[in-house]
Nucleic acid binder design. Sequence first.
DNA 1: CTGAAAGCGCTTACAG
DNA 2: CTGAAAGCGCTTACAG
Lengths: 355, 355
Amino acid sequence: MIKIKEVAQLARVAPSSVSRVLNDHPDVSPEMKERVLRAAEQLGYQPNFLAQSLRTGATRTVGFVVRDISIPMFGGIVKGAEQELESYGYSVLLTNSLQNSALEAKHISVLCQRRVDGLILSLQSEASAETFKALDNVQVPVVLLDRELIGLPADAVLFDHASGVQEAVADLVDLGHRRIGLLVGSSRTRASRDRIRGFMAACEGAGTSANWDSIVELPTATLEVVGQATASLLGQAVTAIVAGDAQIGTALLGAMKERKVQPGRDVSLVICDDLELFRLVDPAVSVVYRDAEQMGAVAARILMKRLSGGVAGPIREILRTNYVARGSTMPPPETSVLPQGRALRAVTGSSGKRS
Amino acid sequence: MIKIKEVAQLARVAPSSVSRVLNDHPDVSPEMKERVLRAAEQLGYQPNFLAQSLRTGATRTVGFVVRDISIPMFGGIVKGAEQELESYGYSVLLTNSLQNSALEAKHISVLCQRRVDGLILSLQSEASAETFKALDNVQVPVVLLDRELIGLPADAVLFDHASGVQEAVADLVDLGHRRIGLLVGSSRTRASRDRIRGFMAACEGAGTSANWDSIVELPTATLEVVGQATASLLGQAVTAIVAGDAQIGTALLGAMKERKVQPGRDVSLVICDDLELFRLVDPAVSVVYRDAEQMGAVAARILMKRLSGGVAGPIREILRTNYVARGSTMPPPETSVLPQGRALRAVTGSSGKRS
DNA sequence: CTGAAAGCGCTTACAG
DNA sequence: CTGAAAGCGCTTACAG
């Protein structure tokens, strides 16, 4: 590896001058600039990033803690962030917390020890003491993804899960559904609380009393757990189910298949998150769409803005979610004609568009 | 941030002694060790990684170039690698090449400039001049994922795509299929060549003359391109189609749905790669399974072994793939009874097991 | 406009 | 067993 000294020798100038040329310092003569550039080019000089970082105190590196990169949603978020950060000359140090708060906390401190300039965190829970403790020692800017940590004035990018779920449930109500189930993850997480809020709002908006008993909080999204919850909802004679994310939705599809309950015909179905394959099962699944890559890109931009300084309070960016109606949402089995409400909404165009 | 000097002052020793204690140097007195450890603990000292790296020349960082982290297969590979590397104290610097060889080459050199200790590469093509050029300047060990670069003596982890496809096609032949189509990506890539090889071997093994004309090499896996290829195969009256990966398979499912061709009943179907949702479409899709996380973990282990020195020639690790038969592979429409061959194979237990 | 010197925070031969 | 010194490869006040 060529070092600055060798470039300096070839160009017959001091190393400091080489540095100035390469860093576009204004006060350099055109002739010297020319010589240095040629020498650097000739030797294929590339500055040692470590030395630069140690000296300047900036690593142009962002630490990313993600729950599980093999989940497509997180893959999309990381992709969006990485692309955006790359355009600023930043790189991404990636870690998986594997749904484990202790590991999450450990990764946060490892990333700090590696002197990242900032952190983008897709945390497990909003209430992990270990994570809070690790975050206490963090000196660099942090952008939280879809989480709010009380008492921590960090920037955040949040999905507006509520409005998408509300739209979906409103459509179900229009179709004639009165008993609707909601399957969500832990309500110790903003996303689930948000979905519950949208669900309740739609129920109330429909004049239906909100169905607290048909909201199921799942500890995990395994086929077994979701299967039990599904059985329990079907026992309550719900005619439609909303699944809080792709994992829950996938397990729900599995549970329905096991029980030979057909989506749409027997029980209507909406899944929060749009996977390509949800369009290919029969009937195609209605979804609440959110843009993972956008979340990553926005987080990256916030971090860049924060690092360039001059921003005062915490930045909160809310990203919308969209209901997309497909074949898995139909009138409930008993109803043979469309209820009036639906026709009305279709005319005014206020319901989600069918694709 | 606390530095070593402050720890030294508190412990009343020289900075070099602190360093020795913290690096488990053998020649330190128990008393001093005790004092230093207490001081470090008390101050919450964490060595500056940059300074350590600059001095020792090792960053404990691995650069990872992946085509697109939002594709679940790659997510799994990165996850497997990251988990394994973490256990060795290494971190992962992740970049997406976005299927773009120029970007891929750029990322390789950026990672080298960042002084990674090694590189794990999931390259686009096996024949990109830009990538070869970038790789020429690489001084650190490289592990290639599912690619072979002629003339480059790098370590590699490869899937044995051929055997999985061969098993699948053998099962299709047993079921009575005689005209089988294969949809693969560019044959400028080992994976596709491997699949073609397995396909041909099975055709020949069955006494069927190999169907070169029913092998379609796709430039991309868009719905449109795959749709045209599917139409062309159906025009050739194939009764079964094998899709080379999850993207092609997903598009194929879409194309079949568009054309109202039902998997299994109308045309049998095998997809290379197992996504959870492939089990949930109706009928469940037969697949050739490969373990993404295993590939990542094995690549990480090879890199660690290489970095610990003492290994001579390039390491090549082959990972198996497994055919899993499900409902999408059935006898062709005309055939009403199982052909004899199938029953025979089932008895000898040599065909893939149905799940 | 240019160079010599100091220093970022460590580790590691080298003395003792 | 311990400390003082040199040095990893840069950047940046400081002189001139």
